[in-house]
């Protein structure tokens, strides 16, 4: 019982971290900042160029992920069903393919840090030196 209450207390301590803000991260050789509209255009297939002219590669968390929901709530204003419908239209009209999906923050950092011109997003608490934060929406 004592263990349970300890776990409960711990979860209370942890939960504010779990609600930390999503940040947009980029490859170290990419631009140092980007606007919300530019990020939206990249994630909605309206543009494929970073502000510095590099060809952009975007990465997404998997559907159903809380950070993904927070990112899209702030940036594109679309939920998972709307995104699915949007991308199916892009794919089946030959206009493009959705961003590659990763399953967790570590994988997101690994893909972004190893792909020039890439951007992604993670929880602020997961930021480390392998990537740089280019926007806090």
């Amino acid at each position: 019982m004592k263990k349970l209450s300890l776990m409960f207390a711990a979860s209370l301590l942890v939960s504010p971290l779990a609600l930390a803000d999503v940040v947009v991260i980029g490859h170290s050789a990419g631009p140092n900042s980007i606007t919300e509209n530019q990020v939206r255009d990249l994630y909605l297939n309206r543009s494929n160029e970073l502000p510095d002219g590099q060809k952009a590669t975007t990465f997404e968390m998997a559907s159903g992920d809380a950070v993904r929901a927070q990112f899209h709530d702030k940036i594109t204003g679309r939920n998972d069903a709307q995104l699915k419908a949007f991308w199916s239209k892009q794919v089946f009209t030959g206009r493009g393919q959705p961003p590659a999906e990763v399953s967790n923050a570590a994988a997101m950092k690994a893909r972004v840090s190893s792909t020039p011109g890439s951007i992604g997003y993670i929880d602020e608490a997961d930021v480390d030196s392998s990537v740089k934060v280019i926007l806090t929406p």
Partner: peptide, 9 residues
């Protein structure tokens, strides 16, 4: 036209 038969879209 492009998504004529893609009912889902």
């Amino acid at each position: 036209s492009d998504s004529l038969e893609v009912g889902y879209s």
